[in-house]
Simulated assay, not measured.
Amino acid sequence: MITVSSEISFTEVLDLLGTFAFAVSGIRLASGKNIDWFGAYVIGLVTAIGGGTIRDLLLDVKPFWMLDATYLLTTGAALLAAILFRDKLLKLGNTLFLFDTIGLGLFTTVGIAKSLNSGLPFWVCVTMGAITGTAGGVIRDVLLNEVPLLFRKDIYALPCIAGGIVFFVCYQFDFLVPVVELLAATTVILTRIVAVKFHIQLPILNLEGKGRKE
């Protein structure tokens, strides 16, 4: 039976905030693509739940959104907010980047925390965090015929790894769980922002040689 959570943990709060942020990023990218409101909702939803769904399937558990309708409602709230405040969103040229980055940080942390609760080793938890943070954006970009951010020059997945390292360092020193999760999420967000601001990019793979002509 699908329910709406009445009591939520700090991790679930981050999960819902990440859902809202990622849903807005998907809806914002769908704007201008000749997509109706329902289509925009679907894009926002797959952006928000895509990474977590893949994570849960790999963890062999029922996907989180099938057990709690809050995530579907949160995506609806994101669509409503985007419609009501569309003028402000359009004026902010970095709206997509901002919400995508926030969602990346929050979802990475949630993915690590849920994987850790499953008793998985460090490297698996970091991988699950990266999948949770990036896979929804990949699905969004593919559906909208965009080159996924994960595959561009901009650093996208590496901040997730940095956040994972911070998570486990703090965890080993017995920091409070909310502190650990906030520091990890902040690390992901700040690393991504710094990388974009200062144009820090990975080299483009070119195995064809500089002299090759098309």
Rank of each mutant, 00 (worst) to 15 (best):
M1F: 08
I2L: 13
V4P: 01
S5R: 15
E7S: 13
I8R: 03
V13F: 14
L14N: 03
D15A: 03
D15N: 12
L17K: 07
G18D: 02
G18I: 03
G18W: 02
T19M: 11
A21C: 14
V24I: 15
S25W: 09
S25C: 04
R28Y: 14
A30G: 09
G32R: 04
W37S: 15
G39T: 04
G39E: 06
G39K: 06
A40E: 12
Y41L: 04
L45N: 06
L45T: 13
T47H: 06
T47L: 04
A48T: 09
A48R: 07
G50N: 05
G51T: 01
D56H: 07
L57H: 05
L57W: 05
L58M: 13
L58H: 06
L58G: 02
D60G: 00
V61L: 02
F64M: 02
W65N: 05
M66V: 14
M66Q: 12
L67D: 10
L67H: 07
Y71L: 13
Y71G: 12
T74I: 14
T74M: 15
A77R: 03
L80H: 02
A81V: 12
A81C: 10
A82L: 12
A82Y: 14
I83D: 06
L84W: 12
F85Q: 09
R86M: 11
R86G: 05
R86P: 08
R86F: 11
D87E: 14
K88T: 08
L89K: 08
L89M: 15
L90I: 15
K91W: 08
L92M: 15
N94L: 09
T95M: 13
L98F: 13
F99N: 06
I102Q: 05
I102F: 10
G103M: 08
G103T: 02
G105T: 05
T109H: 09
G111E: 02
A113H: 15
S115E: 04
S118V: 11
S118W: 14
W123A: 12
V124W: 10
V126G: 01
T127W: 07
M128V: 01
A130Q: 01
I131W: 05
T132M: 03
G133D: 00
T134H: 05
G136L: 06
G137E: 05
V138D: 01
I139F: 10
I139E: 07
I139G: 08
L143T: 05
E146V: 08
P148F: 11
L149M: 13
L150I: 13
L158D: 00
P159R: 07
C160G: 10
I161R: 10
I161W: 09
G163E: 04
F167L: 08
V169G: 04
L176H: 12
E181G: 00
E181K: 03
L183N: 06
A184E: 02
A185F: 05
A185P: 11
T187F: 01
V188M: 04
V188T: 02
I189K: 06
R192M: 01
I193H: 11
V194G: 00
A195M: 00
K197S: 13
F198Y: 15
H199W: 07
I200E: 03
I200G: 00
I200M: 10
Q201Y: 12
I204K: 15
G209C: 07
G211E: 10
K213D: 07
E214K: 15
E214A: 10
